[in-house]
Design a protein around this nucleic acid. Sequence first.
DNA 1: AATAGTTGCACCATCGATTGTGCAAGCCCC
DNA 2: GGGGCTTGCACAATCGATGGTGCAACTATT
Lengths: 367, 367
Amino acid sequence: MKRSGKRKTIYDLSALSGCSPSTVSAVLNGSWRKRRISEKTAALIRKLADSHQYTANRQARGLRRSRSGLVGLLLPLYDNRYFSSMAQTFEAMVRARGECPIVASASRDPKAERETAESLIAYSVDELFICGATDPDGVHEICEKAGLRHVNIDLPGTLAPSVISDNYDGACRLTEAVIRHCARTEPLRPEDLYLFGGRDDHASRERLRGFRTVKRGMLGADPDACIQPTGYSANNTRLAFEAFFAREGRLPRAIIINSTINLEGFLRFMAGVPQAAFRDLVIGCYDYDPFASFLPFPVIMIRQNVEAMLARAFEIIADPEAAAGIHLVAPELVPPRTALPGPLDALKDTPWRPLDVSAGEKLAKSA
Amino acid sequence: MKRSGKRKTIYDLSALSGCSPSTVSAVLNGSWRKRRISEKTAALIRKLADSHQYTANRQARGLRRSRSGLVGLLLPLYDNRYFSSMAQTFEAMVRARGECPIVASASRDPKAERETAESLIAYSVDELFICGATDPDGVHEICEKAGLRHVNIDLPGTLAPSVISDNYDGACRLTEAVIRHCARTEPLRPEDLYLFGGRDDHASRERLRGFRTVKRGMLGADPDACIQPTGYSANNTRLAFEAFFAREGRLPRAIIINSTINLEGFLRFMAGVPQAAFRDLVIGCYDYDPFASFLPFPVIMIRQNVEAMLARAFEIIADPEAAAGIHLVAPELVPPRTALPGPLDALKDTPWRPLDVSAGEKLAKSA
DNA sequence: AATAGTTGCACCATCGATTGTGCAAGCCCC
DNA sequence: GGGGCTTGCACAATCGATGGTGCAACTATT
């Protein structure tokens, strides 16, 4: 791919207009009234800027102002509906504030988290939203040192304000809903209800705690074997289900799954087993995915309130007084076969124009 | 959120080390051998940089070098599995090259696409991957003017190289697979096979062309009513299905759906209809979503080869000779109930540590 | 010891935009 | 017509990193 052309600067416009660079700058960044530039000069410069497609070099501006206009979101990953809707919603909210969203992911790896944060800081992001970090406090130290405002989302740290879902409450409601759903046919015994997934993070711990509380309360016991932690790996989850199935010859009647990533591991297991094995199954799953909600057995899901969490986080990051501490946001219980609206519904579709098939053929021929 | 601290610069390290700023700079950016800085001085400066957590100000560096180290991906949206896996794969590939990925989305809106491109250019991205743009040529003009290397993905333009899926071939194979799947029970009549979704973009046109070619070839006809374009809106798709169902009292036996976004619209319709209505349904859907593949009726999907498309795009963008033109990448037909591995499988999960429930309780109490 | 070559680093302009300050020209008023 | 005020802009330093160039202090050579 060849390149050409080069960007105009305020110096080019200065030469073109006969005004000084500082005048051009003032006109184009809006401070011209304050600097008593005449309306006429301003109009001239704006016209030139327009006709030459001028755009300010943000690196230069950022260097001088020591702020970039960038708002960062640090994500563990993109490729599931929870985090992708987080990115989608974040993008919309930052744009609504007239700033530029920049998203990066760090693979749940503490080292990558720190490096990515450093990299974002190197680009002088003005604020950083740290979402689902494995080591939020590690990232905090780096932000602190750089004087960067930041807030945790989804997984809490101890050194910065954190906005997270009320995972304990969500897990309680989810577990209860699953137990009640099963009880429609036949009461559940303790060994009929399993939990798969999760690892040693705050969310998993809280969900597990909720699960155990409700299970003991409603079913009277919670044998250790009923907890099958598999981390956030789909393949580990598949292996865990395969091992269970090989051992028991069947699935548990009810399964709580810690994340849609683990549910994907369950799919991998499903693919190798006759559909009949899932006839009476009831699943409760943390995080909402519209397609998962319509699987061929009841899937009760917990949808984290991404919009509310982000809105709260924006409030907190704007508050100079905000201190470390956890802000809980209630998640939502989603019954089986539910298609909730999502952030994409905010996008307007372009008006429909009739499909021109011959145009398609022409384009295809030119390929 | 309060801020504090401030970042060290080469001038701070210069003062600390007794060396000049240029020496510090040379040591820290690797050009020190060329500048004949002694090993001893280099070691001293590196030690200071380390102990003071120095990181270079990338805006300053970018300003001076007129390149930023940023590689941009312009996406229509984040929140579906096709685009989120695009972002995930892109991120990994850019990181593998030692550069910094930056992703932004533009909502399929030509104006937003141009503005986002301008914004990325303002941050001096070194290369731009334009994915699924509604108006790739509009973005091209802006890139061209800025001398920015760029390449189209997913939707082609006429002014820059484009890497896209072979949508025609994919649609042919998908349509044929759906027809054959239905024929297992009872041969399909032309009016049993519908296509929902799509709008006036290259991908939709090609998919429609493939659909028509195969349908006419295998079923002998393709009544106009069998094409129900609904754009990329889930709600429009829901309305289209509701209208159809109200009119016909049933669904078509087989439906090709242009995108998982439209399939989500179908879910919204599904939620209001008894499950029996879907007993004999067969769906063919463009784009792959693991959960959609396990819906309670056969869903045959087409998975676009995101890795291959991106890999090809990276080759092209590195090639100074690359000219405008379309590069086709074959998509993959995915049978029902298939859980393919995805980009997340490349992430290593942290080793398992036993869940400490009491720790969770402690954390929860501090909230 | 004088010359030539090498080593090791400092100096300074530069990237593009911002912003505090200075100053000429025009105007008003007594 | 001189002092004071306003208008409208130019000048120059600055943000942090980079890289071309210059130049002492050594070392080697004859």
